[in-house]
Nucleic acid binder design. Structure first.
Lengths: 141, 141
DNA sequence: CAATAATTGCGACAGATTTGCAAAAATAAT
DNA sequence: ATTATTTTTGCAAATCTGTCGCAATTATTG
């Protein structure tokens, strides 16, 4: 996986440095991270500005993706660096569950792109609701 | 449509003021707007803080929705104020095309929620690619 | 109209993101 | 391996975004 990272950077004329590797590593965690979580998780080793720079570069090269999560956004590795998946988010406790591409979903998505003459490059599906636990907890009266 | 806005506000104990009406009006434009675009588009008449307040209120009442668009998020009217739809975004020129819910999409989405024990509340589908025009323009060498 | 409650505008702020530049690290060329 | 060259990083300062308190203004109620 680090190889693919190195290769992707090289091809674009950038090098795989320690800071970049660290940021990449921090994003390999299972759950998407807030920019702030990311910055603090590596702040001992890497400067804030450098984290931002790495994130900007990674996003530009399609290495990471941002997903909207209420008012905040989160970062996670893109499909090429982690299996393609989507998110199911609980509107109450905000837990995020990843799920695989539904069957035949590709057909639907490519059909949409095709009908507008687009060349499909990527897609994302976000589902929101209440998780089992939060359904139980009654709203505070 | 303004009636529905007024009604929605009233029911929640708020009034339909000129500033709010202006912000709502600005969002009725066909394309989703950046917070900054929104603020500047009405800055002659409305204070920045008030725009933020209106947006926060509208979002809380489900009148508007944020969609992620690359690094920025954008705002647009929610389903109740504009037909339910999704977005097809061009990765090069960033134009956004709205499209209707694909057939049987509900089944797929509710199936996902159900399989995780979630109560479905909402969903969003974003598709990215290259629009017809941008496929033609060759990348600048 | 008067009284009361909700909303705005403004200026000050706290947090988030960006930028300029010299020092440090990486890559290329002896 | 050592030096020259190019790319990155760290740091501090500057910007941009979104929020807050409070007095003035506008809307709602009787």
């Amino acid at each position: 996986m680090i190889d693919l990272l190195a290769q992707t950077l090289r091809e674009a004329g950038h090098s795989l440095t320690k800071p970049r590797m660290t940021v990449f590593g921090a994003l390999q965690a299972p759950k998407p991270k807030t920019m702030n979580q990311l910055v603090t998780s590596v702040s001992d080793i890497i400067n804030r500005a450098s984290v931002y720079r790495a994130v900007a570069l990674f996003e530009e090269l399609g290495i990471i993706t941002r997903i909207q999560h209420g008012w905040k956004y989160r970062l996670e590795l893109s499909d090429a660096f982690t299996p393609h998946h989507h998110h199911l988010t609980c509107n109450k406790c905000h837990r995020i569950i990843s799920f695989d591409e539904p069957d035949r979903f590709d057909e639907i998505v490519s059909g949409i792109a095709a009908s507008h003459g687009f060349v499909l490059q990527n897609h994302g599906l976000e589902v929101y609701g209440l998780c089992p636990e939060c359904q139980t907890k009654k709203a505070a009266t």
